[in-house]
């Protein structure tokens, strides 16, 4: 139970930090914010790689492999498309 509360503490505090930081993002940058957060939510790539690499059964490896593909699409696609958009804002901004 204590362990759960420890993770819950991290969750609540991180949510708080997120709200404080993200409220300051101007509306003009909300689309890059969304695509950037897509990339960050691809953090499940960590768990995906662990399952894909642990080779416990063929089934867990398949699930891990699929998750690795999906999460990598998020990470690479998210960061790259955000970069593309931000470059346009910088061109004359």
């Amino acid at each position: 139970m204590n362990e759960f509360v420890a993770y819950l503490t991290v969750f609540v505090l991180a949510m708080w930090v997120g709200i404080e930081v993200i409220t300051k993002v101007p509306p003009s940058l909300h689309t890059p914010l969304t695509s950037g957060s897509n990339a960050v939510s691809g953090i499940t790539i960590l768990g995906a790689m662990i399952s894909a690499g642990a080779m416990v059964t063929i089934w867990t490896t398949t699930l891990g492999f699929l998750a690795t593909v999906l999460a990598t699409v998020n990470v690479v696609g998210g960061f790259l498309v955000t970069y593309r958009m931000l470059q346009m804002f910088r061109k004359r901004g």
Binding site: V10, G18, L33, S41, I43, T44, G47
Partner: peptide, 27 residues
């Protein structure tokens, strides 16, 4: 992603997931 962080006991997932969760809620 945050829920999966609780599954794996992985703070990287918990923190990143809650940041994204907060961002989506604000928007």
């Amino acid at each position: 992603a945050a829920a999966t962080g609780f599954v794996l006991r992985n703070n990287a997932l918990v923190i990143s997931g809650s940041l994204v969760g907060a961002s989506g809620l604000i928007l």
